[in-house]
């Protein structure tokens, strides 16, 4: 399968742990990492030919442009308004969850502290969104 994931994550530890899990579970053959919201938007809407991701894993607390703002812009653009976006964050604030779904997030996952649970969560969501889920 040729599946691409865009991981928007500013914490290098989380990036490393996520990448390891995705690699181990053999779900995606390419993971593009954006370290803040601006970088992510630049990748998606910038100049030049890019590989379009099949899934966006989005952290909320990001430098420069935060996760919810990135989501708002993705949903406002015709090219990305159907792109599956999974919020993957430390926050369990009710307000963040409601705002995330309001703006059109497809899923909201809270990163568990326990690495086994974290790995399992990432594996399952990758499997679900990249393999099971059908997109237009």
């Amino acid at each position: 399968m040729s599946k691409t994931i865009l991981l928007i994550e500013d914490n290098p530890d989380d990036e490393l742990l996520t990448l390891r899990t995705l690699k181990r579970s053999n779900i995606a053959n390419e993971v593009i990492v954006a370290r803040d919201g601006a970088e992510a938007l630049e990748y998606l809407f910038g100049e030049g030919v890019r590989v379009r991701p099949e899934l966006v894993l989005l952290d909320l607390k990001l430098p420069r442009i935060d996760g919810l703002e990135v989501l708002r812009r993705l949903r406002a653009d015709r090219r990305t308004h159907l792109l599956p976006v999974v919020i993957l964050t430390s926050s369990r604030e009710q307000q963040d969850i409601v705002d995330g779904y309001d703006l059109g997030a497809n899923s909201y996952i809270r990163k568990p502290v326990d690495f086994d649970q974290f790995s399992e969560a990432v594996r399952q969501l990758g499997l679900y969104w990249l393999v099971l889920n059908e997109v237009p």
């Binding site: 530890d13 989380d14 742990l17 568990p112």
Partner: peptide, 22 residues
């Protein structure tokens, strides 16, 4: 403050746990 605790205190814990697991 709660939000900060929830988000920022858990992130290093996840690293500690994650890398000790690895």
């Amino acid at each position: 403050f709660s939000y900060t605790v929830s988000h920022d205190l858990r992130a290093p814990l996840r690293s500690i746990n994650g890398f000790s697991s690895i």
